[in-house]
Simulated assay, not measured.
Amino acid sequence: MSAPNRIFDDLSKLMTNAVGVAQGAKDEAQTAFNGWIDRWLADRDFVTRDEFEAVREMAIKARTENAELRARLDALEGKTGA
């Protein structure tokens, strides 16, 4: 009765190893694909989301400062009667 059990054990080990190899191949393919995508995007001079958000925040701050300065100028012009 030990012979069928040994066959099943060997088959189980073989399947486990096959799943491990398949997972490794999947991970390697994913890494290669991600590298290709990164290079493709870099060649097109796209910005990252972080870079976009940083510039967006700078633009919002600049608009706010411009509005505040405009209000100060308007107030100064009102005082001088210009």
Score class of each variant (00 low, 15 high):
residue 62 A to S: 09
residue 50 D to Q: 02
residue 33 F to L: 15
residue 4 P to I: 04
residue 50 D to M: 03
residue 5 N to D: 15
residue 30 Q to E: 06
residue 21 V to P: 05
residue 4 P to C: 04
residue 74 D to I: 08
residue 61 K to D: 11
residue 38 D to T: 14
residue 47 V to H: 02
residue 44 R to I: 07
residue 82 A to N: 11
residue 6 R to M: 09
residue 44 R to A: 11
residue 55 V to R: 11
residue 59 A to E: 14
residue 8 F to C: 13
residue 61 K to R: 08
residue 74 D to W: 00
residue 11 L to H: 05
residue 58 M to S: 13
residue 11 L to F: 01
residue 2 S to W: 11
residue 12 S to H: 00
residue 41 L to I: 06
residue 22 A to M: 07
residue 14 L to F: 07
residue 54 A to S: 14
residue 22 A to R: 05
residue 66 N to V: 13
residue 71 A to Y: 03
residue 47 V to N: 05
residue 12 S to T: 11
residue 14 L to M: 12
residue 53 E to P: 04
residue 37 I to L: 12
residue 40 W to I: 00
residue 26 K to A: 15
residue 44 R to G: 01
residue 17 N to D: 10
residue 50 D to L: 07
residue 23 Q to V: 13
residue 31 T to Y: 02
residue 14 L to C: 13
residue 68 E to N: 12
residue 6 R to L: 14
residue 50 D to F: 03
residue 67 A to F: 06
residue 73 L to A: 05
residue 56 R to V: 02
residue 28 E to R: 15
residue 63 R to V: 07
residue 29 A to I: 08
residue 76 L to M: 05
residue 25 A to M: 13
residue 40 W to E: 06
residue 37 I to F: 02
residue 52 F to D: 06
residue 66 N to E: 14
residue 13 K to G: 09
residue 15 M to E: 06
residue 44 R to Y: 00
residue 42 A to V: 01
residue 8 F to P: 01
residue 65 E to F: 08
residue 13 K to A: 15
residue 64 T to C: 01
residue 79 K to D: 07
residue 17 N to Y: 06
residue 31 T to H: 07
residue 59 A to G: 06
residue 7 I to Q: 04
residue 54 A to Q: 08
residue 5 N to H: 10
residue 23 Q to N: 13
residue 16 T to H: 09
residue 8 F to V: 10
residue 31 T to N: 07
residue 45 D to V: 11
residue 31 T to C: 10
residue 9 D to Y: 12
residue 49 R to C: 04
residue 56 R to P: 00
residue 74 D to G: 12
residue 63 R to L: 12
residue 53 E to K: 12
residue 7 I to M: 10
residue 27 D to K: 08
residue 3 A to H: 09
residue 39 R to K: 15
residue 23 Q to S: 14
residue 39 R to W: 01
residue 48 T to V: 00
residue 16 T to W: 03
residue 71 A to I: 05
residue 74 D to P: 04
residue 78 G to K: 09
residue 31 T to W: 00
residue 28 E to T: 13
residue 43 D to F: 11
residue 21 V to F: 15
residue 23 Q to K: 09
residue 65 E to P: 06
residue 79 K to Q: 10
residue 80 T to M: 01
residue 58 M to F: 03
residue 29 A to G: 07
residue 15 M to S: 11
residue 73 L to R: 06
residue 17 N to I: 00
residue 52 F to S: 08
residue 3 A to T: 04
residue 30 Q to Y: 02
residue 43 D to V: 01
residue 58 M to I: 10
residue 62 A to P: 01
residue 13 K to D: 11
residue 11 L to K: 07
residue 34 N to Y: 02
residue 36 W to G: 15
residue 1 M to W: 06
residue 82 A to W: 00
residue 72 R to I: 05
residue 3 A to E: 15
residue 44 R to H: 08
residue 67 A to T: 01
residue 41 L to Q: 04
residue 43 D to R: 08
residue 39 R to I: 03
residue 64 T to F: 14
residue 76 L to T: 05
residue 64 T to M: 09
residue 10 D to T: 04
residue 8 F to A: 13
residue 16 T to M: 13
residue 31 T to V: 14
residue 45 D to N: 14
